[in-house]
Amino acid sequence: MINLSKNRPIVRSFEPIALVGGGEIGPDDLNVMLIRAKTVVAADGGAAPLVESGRIPDAVIGDFDSLHSQHKDQIPADRLHPLREQNSTDFDKALRSIEAPVVLGAGFLGGRLDHQLAVLNTLVQRQDKPCILLGETEVVFHAPPRISLSITPGDVVSLFPFRRVTGTSKGLEWAIDDLVMEPGGQVGTSNRALADVELTVDGPGLLVMVPRYTLDQLMQAFLSGQTGHWPVRAE
């Protein structure tokens, strides 16, 4: 559902929403998203690959500095939602304007490192917006209060804190119990699964990177509501 109220999300759904950015998109990324989400939103220039694939986005959100006329002219005007302020990225503009149980994103990882860091920072800032980003071989998401995943033993599970967090784990080669993870301090990259993995964290701020084949498990976990959720961050 598209909502034009200035005080409410632009796009709202009780089902997953796909969000496409203007960065690197893998050869199968659009197909992966379009079979899992009926509603598709583009963040600014992310409209281009959608239009070129034959799928007109249900909404385009951003400052429109990357949306070229050959693509913009093919999108109905009522689906264009320019947010002109320059204090946030197009990913942030789009994510904060979506209300859904989970957002599945592509076109935000790879390419320029500064862009990727800004995207990862937004995942943490928008802690109340469950979002899974597709990478080439992995997915990344902001850890909810608790999550359980079936991961093949030996596969990598990386944990990277953007804030100071503590937690507990089961099924990891190196347990995180009693660790304090924080930027500039202890991190948890290149950990490995021993069995089914369970994570709990005491607060928002931890990014998790797991193999791409866990995507459907992750989506189901967020859709079930069993993960718990973080409140809107005070600004």
Rank of each mutant, 00 (worst) to 15 (best):
L109D: 03
L109Q: 09
G110D: 04
G110Q: 05
G111H: 03
G111F: 02
G111L: 11
L113P: 00
H115P: 00
H115E: 07
H115G: 09
Q116G: 02
A118W: 00
A118T: 02
N121K: 10
N121D: 13
T122P: 02
L123Q: 02
V124H: 05
Q127L: 09
D128M: 06
I132A: 05
I132E: 04
I132N: 08
I132C: 08
T137R: 01
T137K: 00
E138W: 02
V139I: 15
F141I: 13
F141L: 15
H142K: 11
A143G: 02
A143T: 05
A143E: 02
P144G: 06
P145C: 05
R146N: 13
R146C: 09
S150C: 03
S150K: 15
I151F: 05
I151S: 08
D155V: 09
V156T: 15
V157I: 06
V157T: 04
V157E: 07
L159N: 04
F160S: 03
P161R: 05
P161S: 11
R163A: 14
T166F: 00
T166W: 03
T166P: 06
T168P: 09
T168W: 02
S169L: 09
K170Y: 06
G171S: 09
L172T: 07
L172H: 01
E173Q: 13
A175S: 14
I176R: 11
I176G: 06
I176D: 09
D177S: 08
D177M: 09
D178R: 14
D178E: 14
D178F: 15
L179R: 10
L179P: 10
V180H: 08
M181G: 08
P183Y: 05
G184K: 08
G184Y: 12
G185C: 07
G185S: 15
Q186Y: 07
V187I: 12
N191E: 13
N191P: 00
R192I: 10
R192V: 12
R192P: 02
R192H: 06
A193S: 15
L194S: 04
